[in-house]
Amino acid sequence: MGKVVVVTSGKGGVGKTTSAAALGAALAQRKEKTVVVDFDVGLRNLDLVMGAERRVVYDLVNVIQGEAKLAQALIRDKRLETLYLLPASQTRDKDNLTAEGVERVIGALKKTFDWVICDSPAGIERGATLAMRHADVAVVVTNPEVSSVRDSDRIIGLIDAKTAKAERGERMDRHLLLTRYNPNRAERGDMLSVEDVLEILSIPLLGIVPESMDVLRASNIGMPVTLADSQSAPAQAYLQAARRLAGEDVPISIPGEKRSLLGKLFGWRAA
């Protein structure tokens, strides 16, 4: 059975879709069969970021409503044969996602894929709660600024209360992915520090992705940043985050600082 990961944040524009695509591609680069599912019905973007916008025929809503088979809606990436995309519908709205339908699709995907990455829409409404509902692991994407941190805190509360796992009395693993981190601004105090964010959210850190033009450039050419230039700093951060997600023990370093913060960060890990 594959693992279901939800990439979520509460706030919009923090880098959920970019991160879902980059992590999905990074896991697929490890030769693990990965599908990235776009839950942002009505405002889909994942197809653009993954460069598949011209190949979309059927989508998640078609599959849920029985108008298409799952195999017809899945799009295989042209560059990585282990990477697939399940696009969202652009013409429908989120009311077309039903709890039973989502459960059925996720259940079917889990059987054939090693990783099912759910790209959540912003907000705390239907789309977002359904995207996290059947996940095993949550990746909470946060920017180092107060409004993003507070929204992430809200989402973590919902993950702990409103998911299938929570209703069974289990605790979902939640990981923090800090994106758009700018070492210079953090040093000047214009941005929350890594430690501040970890202290407020008290969940383990999956990775720190530096703010970079490489991310924008990759999005614009329709490539996950880990595929576009695997040597760039953000790509390296995502590749390492994917290894940690897969259970490898990889030390975390804060961009702009040479020393490893592993020991320090482990001290912050929530029980």
Binding site: R150, D151, D153, R154, I156, G157, D160, S202
Partner: peptide, 8 residues
């Protein structure tokens, strides 16, 4: 024994 999160 766990954080009280925003909105709770």
């Amino acid at each position: 024994d766990q954080p009280v999160r925003s909105g709770q």
